[in-house]
Every structure is written in C-alpha cells, then in structure tokens.
C-alpha cells in the first residue's frame, strides 16, 4: 500500500466515539487528514465537498442515520465505507449497501486494522477492482 496518504471522514453523533475511531486511525501509517462529522447531514455535506478516500460511519444517529447518509450521497458516489455500530442488528443491511466492513463498538484494534486495510485497498482500486482486492489477493 503506497501512494498519497488517505483522507478519512469519521461520522458519529458522540464526541467520545469519534475520539475512539480517531485514536485507532492514529495507529494506521497510511492515514493523512482525519475529519469528523457529528450527524448525518454534516456527513453528506462533507462527503460531497471534501470527497474523502474512506468513511467510518456510525449507524444509529438522530434524524439521518448511517444508511440514510449512503442513500443521500448515492451508492455510486459513496467512498468505501466501514460501518461502526454499538449493537449488531444491521450487519446484513450494511453489506447490502456494499459496505467494505462492519465493526462493533467497543472496537477491537486488530479487527479495526483489518477493516482499515480492506477499505484502503478499496479506495486504491475503486469499483470492481476494490471488491477483488477486499476479498484477498
């Protein structure tokens, strides 16, 4: 994995949860800028304007939730996304919208690293190449 450092967007309505993902991202050498969004609307705006390379997206947020964000941006325009959620009730739906991975809070650092590497490969490859990269090779 070489090339430019990755721009990452962290979306969660809880400051502490964002800080948690930020701390895990600080461990990843490939990460460049990290931005935060505190709700769904802010996330949609940030994705449209800033075009981050990958997104860590909380599922449960007031008003516009994680799935709402993917829908609003459009699956085609959506950067690789890793869902992060507190309660395992959305995994199937997450993969239906082609999430790269699905993490449960509190997040295990090794598991986070796996998800990050997959997402980074998807960001590097784009589209079908990303899928192949994410599934191995």
């Amino acid at each position: 994995m070489s090339g430019a450092a990755l721009d990452v967007l962290v979306v969660d309505d809880e400051p502490l949860a964002r800080a948690g993902v930020r701390a895990l991202l600080a461990e990843q050498p490939e990460v460049g800028a990290v931005r935060e969004a505190r709700d769904g609307e802010a996330a949609v705006a940030a994705i449209r304007e800033r075009r981050p390379d990958l997104v860590f997206l909380d599922v449960q947020m007031p008003r516009l939730d994680g799935f709402g964000v993917v829908e609003a941006v459009g699956a085609g325009a959506m950067p690789p996304v890793v869902f992060v959620t507190a309660y395992d009730a959305h995994a199937v739906r997450a993969f239906e919208v082609h999430a790269v991975d699905y993490l449960l809070k509190p997040v295990d650092p090794a598991r986070f690293r796996d998800a990050f590497v997959r997402a980074a490969r998807a960001a590097a490859g784009g589209g079908a190449a990303a899928l192949r990269a994410a599934t191995g090779s």
Partner: peptide, 12 residues
C-alpha cells in the same frame, strides 16, 4: 445501543 455505546465510551 445505550449499553454498548456506554461500554465503548469506557474503552475510549
């Protein structure tokens, strides 16, 4: 959700 978000906060 409350339970696991709280545990996540503790971990952070």
């Amino acid at each position: 959700h409350f339970l696991f978000n709280t545990l996540n906060s503790v971990a952070v």
